[in-house]
Design a protein around this nucleic acid. Structure first.
Lengths: 97, 97
DNA sequence: GGAATTTGGTTTATAAAATAAACTAACTAT
DNA sequence: ATAGTTAGTTTATTTTATAAACCAAATTCC
């Protein structure tokens, strides 16, 4: 049977965020926004979903123009990414991988 | 920069259909429906999108209860899948692949 | 032979997701 | 003090996915 692909990760923007957080210790909102070329609104919503699922942690210091939101991948998130990759691989047998 | 993931392929059901068609010469509607555990309505819509993009060919013989819709992957579709995999891989550096 | 069922779909309506637009709160320079 | 900028959030709109309803032809069962 076809393997289920974690719907939380199977989204262009959320996957991009998770991908970035795989490679760095932490990343702030502005950095993620630039790297993913997303709008602030969309990013805000998707980060909140990832945080709600426990895939990332998200801490905000300050408010207004001084606000800084810092995101980190959690162990849960890393495991979910690994599971997602493993599931994906089953979709591409017979293709150059 | 993050690579764009072909939105037509970045859908659970359409990707599953394409994945199945990678492995077989052809597949009919009922087979795809069973393998993907999708509803007929959803499958009908998504097959139409893949066909409209030229990623699969879709030919229907007969009508009513005797209708048989047969799908095949096109060269365009295969190339799109390859590009999709290549783009995806860039998302997972630092993970067991 | 003619209702009731089944089969293989398509169309239309609804729910969920992504995106954009509008807004808030605080700072900065004029 | 007011105009503009920055870092976000909230709300509204658009797009996408899914489910429900439907249709046409074949089949089953009296």
């Amino acid at each position: 049977m076809m393997q289920e692909l974690d719907p939380l990760l199977h989204s262009q923007l959320r996957l991009a965020v998770m991908s970035i957080l795989l490679g760095v210790e932490q990343a702030d909102f502005v950095y993620l926004k630039e790297k993913t070329e997303s709008t602030a609104g969309n990013l805000s919503v998707q980060l909140e979903k990832l945080a709600a699922a426990g895939y990332i942690s998200k801490e905000t210091d300050g408010s207004g123009a001084k606000a800084r939101t810092i995101c980190r991948m959690t162990d849960t998130g890393r495991a979910a990414m690994q599971a997602y990759v493993d599931a994906l691989k089953t979709y591409f047998t017979g293709l150059n991988q």
